[in-house]
Design a protein around this nucleic acid. Sequence first.
DNA 1: GAGATATATTTTATGTATAAACTATTTTTG
DNA 2: CAAAAATAGTTTATACATAAAATATATCTC
Lengths: 170, 170
Amino acid sequence: MNDPATIEAGIPDDQLLPLRVWLALFSSVKQIEAVVRTNLRESFGSTLPRFDLLSQLYRSPGGLTMGEISARLMVTNGNVTGLIGRLVDEGLVDRLQDEDDRRIQWVRLTPKGNKVFSSMAPANQAWVTEAMAELSEGELRQLQSLLGKLKASVAKVPKRPRGDEDPSAE
Amino acid sequence: MNDPATIEAGIPDDQLLPLRVWLALFSSVKQIEAVVRTNLRESFGSTLPRFDLLSQLYRSPGGLTMGEISARLMVTNGNVTGLIGRLVDEGLVDRLQDEDDRRIQWVRLTPKGNKVFSSMAPANQAWVTEAMAELSEGELRQLQSLLGKLKASVAKVPKRPRGDEDPSAE
DNA sequence: GAGATATATTTTATGTATAAACTATTTTTG
DNA sequence: CAAAAATAGTTTATACATAAAATATATCTC
């Protein structure tokens, strides 16, 4: 991932603003991600995707289906298949088939996975808190609120189902 | 990547706030990325990393070195090597060696690359603008300002050079 | 100016991610 | 109920991304 782009030649400033915000959002996230990723690797030999996945499972003691994980992490099913496979190999997670619907896989943290995540989570919180240390509580709340609005705004973008290209549109 | 995680059990709310903001930032970016990625693929058969790279080159008519590209996109050198290779194959970009320093590669947009990027950029701007349509100009400016502060805050996180683990720290 | 160090980039191994095609089930519907 | 449609997940092919090691060149230092 990289750096959302702009053409800035002769476009009025208010037209440019969303693009600039997007750029700022993008680079902030990359920046924080870099901090967290480095720390996860150096301190725990782990990665952000694995941590996020463990976190979801931690919050769902009853387990999650593959599809639910994929929805929560906002990634494809195929991605989750691979991620879970590695975590199973590491013994942090286990899979079992649903008894009624044989298409469904239930995924849960193993006791080891639970323990490992419990040790990572406070460190992660500390890193993120430190990264945001210069923002006051008020600023953080403002940011949170604006991001909430943004989320709602993006969610309204119509996503046409595939095949709806309408090549003969006027 | 996915969904920055939290343990929320019994932690005071203001301790939790940075983590919540991180979560919100992360998912906003994923959400917008999904919109842009889908549109770039459907409309231009391209991807976000390629678009961002073209954008950087577009803004630097004199060309950029591999290292400079890597710094601007905040990705590793190896990543840029691959990305540029594909863009060269597509004829959108060319590489030439520096005359004085033979380690350096200068990368520029080809005329075709220029043309292609010029057609993509306005569409990209429109998508991002639409995604943020529900935010007022004032809100966007506020967001921009807060993200600027955040960037400065994250930049202050000390990044110890590798090998500075100090395993015997007290 | 030779050896050590630094810089620019590529290569290697691996992990993460997507989209599209596919398999296996379940559910719907005529 | 049988055929069709929907759902859950995996597989495949490919792209993107990292970290670490390697290569090649340039610069520094004595």
